[in-house]
């Protein structure tokens, strides 16, 4: 009974979110799209980092690959845009699978450096690749006609899927293996957890979501440039969203993403100071609330939530 009423609220929440683009203004739609996209990517990044001990600094690979694949497939090959998005997701997941073999042999900080270097290599390759516009970038003209009232839905769907994915992963057998790896990889291995398969599966799923985020983002922003599509700032932003909210929780990134998007708009007004202000606020939050905003709230209210909420 109690559980049922909880689901009713979730259904109401989803109903409100689904109908939102019909009655809110254009700017709020824009902001919500960004909110959902950062939320989706940060949820899976936070899960990987906190529970599976996979700290990737190369998720921008998948943002870039998702964006470029979607734009190139629909512009140069005439594939319908929704199909291009799906293909780009599969390609991103495949690429994550391939990268798993060399990269997941590395652990901890070496893995982080490895993913970052992989992203740099791919960025350089795209910077010189004339077919995708090289350093001039790529303007995704076909996406001009797609209004934000439509882009809103894949963004919302990604956020919801990402949240459910993290919830299910956490409680699955795979998640159990991942958490044991996160706690101590050698012990997990000794207990018979196939660490490579567990980590690779998690990395592939997270990268699939991130690729789709990149794909939806390019439809929204209609422009790609290798230095920004494969920029570490993407991963730093996901890290920011996850850490500010509370890394490893589901609710944390929701708060983190809302703060991140609001900061982005707010600080752009303070000319020449935006980066400084943003840095100071992050520093302040991290010093005051090292576990993130959500962890602090839930502790204060004594919510006693079970992880991964």
């Amino acid at each position: 009974m109690e559980l049922k009423s909880r689901y009713i609220y979730i259904v109401i929440l989803l109903a409100v979110l689904t109908s939102l683009p019909l009655w809110v203004g254009g700017f709020l739609r824009d902001a919500l799209i960004l909110f959902f996209l950062y939320l989706a990517a940060a949820e899976v990044w936070g899960f990987m980092a906190k529970h599976a001990g996979i700290v990737s600094l190369g998720q921008q690979i998948f943002i870039g690959v998702g964006g470029y694949t979607t734009a190139v497939l629909s512009m140069y090959f005439g594939i319908p845009m929704y199909a291009s998005v799906i293909i780009s997701g599969l390609l991103g997941a495949g690429l994550a699978g391939l990268l798993s073999f060399p990269l997941l042999r590395l652990r901890g900080v070496y893995f982080a450096i490895g993913t970052f270097l992989a992203a740099e290599v791919i960025r350089l390759a795209f910077s010189g690749w004339e077919f995708v516009g090289a350093g001039k970038g790529l303007i995704f003209r076909d996406a001009y006609g797609i209004p934000t009232t439509i882009i809103y839905y894949p963004a919302l769907a990604l956020a919801v899927i990402s949240i459910f994915l993290v919830y299910l992963l956490y409680h699955s057998k795979l998640g159990f293996g991942l958490r044991s790896i996160g706690a101590d990889e050698d012990v997990a291995c000794g207990l018979g957890v196939n660490t490579f398969v567990c980590k690779a599966t998690c990395f592939i799923l997270a990268s699939l979501i991130t690729t789709l985020v990149g794909a939806v983002n390019v439809i929204h922003h209609t422009y790609l440039h290798p230095t920004s599509a494969f920029s570490i700032s993407w991963t730093v932003n996901f890290l920011f969203v996850a850490v500010i909210g509370g890394v490893g929780t589901i609710v944390g990134p929701i708060i983190g993403s809302a703060l991140f998007v609001a900061f982005g708009y707010l600080f752009a007004q303070y000319l020449g100071l935006s980066l400084l202000l943003e840095g100071l606020i992050v520093l302040a939050i991290l010093i005051a609330l090292p576990q993130g905003v959500w962890s602090a709230i839930s502790r204060k209210l004594k919510l006693n939530l079970k992880p991964p909420l």
Partner: peptide, 8 residues
């Protein structure tokens, strides 16, 4: 508005 030199 400040774009921080970031195309996105």
């Amino acid at each position: 508005r400040d774009t921080k030199s970031d195309p996105d």
